[in-house]
């Protein structure tokens, strides 16, 4: 076999596999453009394509409200984690204090405890605080993240000693050092961290499922379930359009942030 034939063969299989992997999304997008009547009759090859399902989804369902809620929740959690994890990671990277090892181990331990095992008491806590069905209840429990602390600490440790010494020499205090040197130096990790956290919490399901009770606070993923449950005869066109709408920000972030994710994987091991 000649080299070019080999290549054609290679690309043929690659394209086939890529199409298979992408099929669920591609078919979903296609279905979202078809009238439900055509889908229900099994005419998937129909050519009556339009954006009507999207218009219907936006006009007749609160999907935009759900998306706004998810956006607020994901941004709040990312911001909250950014502040809290930065502070904690700074302490572990640059400060010396009593029980450092033990406290570090304490953070470590939380990564072994599944959130699923904490939902009952957490629900009761939120309930007592009066935070059911609120942004506070949806976000504050996630403000601390042992994983985030690890990832940022790892990045902070890369800050050269000389910079640290120099900053102390010219009399920078902790916050100045953090803001003027550590954060800019770790920007790539911080971007990875931010994108990753946003994506993770955009996709949150279980917690919003049990703590939201109205469309005012319901987020996209549980909103999708809500719309599915409110539907009594499988209005496929609109359901697909809603799912694709919810998917768009995810795809956007993946596309823009892909090289950061890859870098993050190589240095920190995301999703640990």
């Amino acid at each position: 076999m000649t080299t070019s034939l080999k290549h054609i063969n290679h690309y043929f299989w690659l394209t086939l596999v890529a199409l298979l992997m992408g099929a669920p999304i591609l078919i979903g997008i296609w279905a979202s453009l078809l009238p439900t009547a055509d889908i229900a009759a099994g005419h998937l090859t129909s050519t009556n394509i339009s954006l009507n399902n999207y218009i219907a989804a936006i006009q007749t369902t609160p999907v935009l409200r759900y998306m706004a809620n998810s956006f607020i929740v994901a941004i709040l959690i990312t911001a909250g984690q950014f502040v809290l994890c930065t502070l904690a990671a700074y302490a572990f990277a640059f400060l010396d204090f009593k029980f450092k090892k033990q406290i570090f181990a304490l953070f470590l331990i939380t990564m072994m405890l599944p959130f699923e095992a904490q939902i009952i008491p957490n629900f009761q806590t939120i309930r007592v605080f009066g935070w059911l069905d609120s942004y506070a209840g949806l976000t504050i429990p996630f403000f601390a993240s042992a994983f985030g602390v690890f990832m940022l600490r790892q990045a902070f440790l890369q800050v050269p000693d000389e910079l640290h010494e120099y900053s102390q020499l010219i009399g920078l205090n902790h916050l100045q050092f953090l803001f003027k040197i550590v954060l800019p130096y770790s920007r790539s990790t911080l971007i990875t961290f931010g994108l990753y956290m946003f994506l993770t919490h955009w996709n949150d399901y279980l917690w919003p499922l049990i703590t939201t009770f109205s469309d005012s606070y319901r987020t996209t993923q549980v909103g999708l379930k809500q719309l599915q449950a409110q539907d009594t005869f499988s209005n496929w066109g609109v359901i697909m359009a809603t799912a694709i709408l919810i998917l768009l920000p995810t795809l956007l972030i993946l596309l823009v942030g892909q090289r950061y994710f890859k870098k993050g994987l190589n240095t920190g091991g995301l999703k640990a």
């Binding site: 502070l87 953070f107 405890l113 904490q118 403000f143 902790h174």
Partner: peptide
């Protein structure tokens, strides 16, 4: 430095309320 406490406190408070306490309660 004792500053460490101030850096760690926010995370520790959240973890205490939403991770350690619920594990014990469970």
């Amino acid at each position: 430095t004792n500053a460490a406490l101030w850096f760690l406190l926010p995370s520790l408070v959240i973890l205490a309320i939403f991770t350690f306490y619920p594990m014990i309660m469970t």
